[in-house]
Every structure is written in structure tokens, then in C-alpha cells.
Amino acid sequence: MKKLWNIFFNGIINENPTLRLVIGMCAPLAVTTTVANGFWMGVAVIFVLTASNILISALRKIVPDQIRIPIFVVVIATFTTVADLSLKAIQPDIHAKLGVFVPLIVVNCIILARAEAFASKNNVLDSAVDGMGMAIGFTLALILLATIREVLGNGTWWGIRVLPAGFEPAIVMILPPGAFVCLGYLLGGLNLLTGKTGEN
């Protein structure tokens, strides 16, 4: 049981895909203008990553090594399509705002990386927990980033006004430069908290 917890938390802190491994950066930078966008993007990734990790782990013994990547991509594409269409049905507004970034989960390197590095070598339960942990880590990072950007750049959180009306939002925070500055400080901050600064 402890092992499963370790696998789960590994994706949230130690190997947080966004803040530690810094992979799959296109979605975190592009969709975190509002917390709602970040959250739903995260939900889509949780579904795709967990489901594809489970299926790839289940198939790992029968997949020929030479063509494993195409097979992974087919699996991931299948679940991504499911996620894309479901999101369109449940949250059409959000789906419209996220635009191309939901279908782009297919080529998100976090998902392919977990398939290759974890799911294809571990059993179904471990893989499911790993996929869940990684995707939740990703989602939390997105929500954190989106919180800072939406509050400072728009004065709201999930559309609710949190700063007084006199506050004049810094528009730059919801523009691309704001995303980069914010992400840089989050990466630095996490390193500072976990004591991983300096020479490694």
C-alpha cells in the first residue's frame, strides 16, 4: 500500500511533470489564463493519462517492442478523442476556449513518457496509480499557475471577483510573458522549498 502511495505522490511533488520535469509545457503556458480552463484541461489529462496507462500496461506483454510507440499513440489518440468529445458535450464553453489544446493531448509528451517509462514496465494497478498521480500533479500545477495569472491579470478566481474593484488588473499576467515569468518563479520556488537549489 505504501508503495502505491509513493507512486502516487511521486507525480505530485518529486517528479511533478510541469514544475519538476518541465515536460509537456505547451498546455500549461497556453491554457492557464483562467482557473476554469486549467481545471478542465487537467481533468481531460487525468482521464487520458490514467486510461492509457491502464490499457498500455495491460497490453505490455503482447506489444512487439519494435512497434510499441505507434501502438501507444493509437491508444492515447483513442482516449483523447473520447475526452475531447465528452468535454464538448459537458462543457461546450470551456471546450471552445481550450480549442486545439485538448486534441493536442495526443502528442503531450507527459502521456507518451509515462507509457514508455512506466506503464510498459509495470503492472496495471501501479500504472493506474502512476497515471493518476502524474495527471493530478499536472492539474495542480495548472490550477496554481492559473490562480496567480487570473487573480493578478483579471482580479478574479474561477470568474469570481476576489480583489476589490479598485484593483487595476495587470493585463500582462494573462498574456504569454506573464505565463513565462510566473512559471519561472514557480519552478524556482519549488526548488527552494525542496532544497534542490545550487550545484547538483
Binding site: E168, A170, I171, V172, M173, L175, P177
Partner: peptide, 8 residues
């Protein structure tokens, strides 16, 4: 540049 982008 930051101020110009934030509060044009």
C-alpha cells in the same frame, strides 16, 4: 515594457 503590457 512590463508596465506598458500590464497597464497600457
Amino acid at each position: 515594457a512590463f508596465l506598458l503590457a500590464a497597464w497600457p
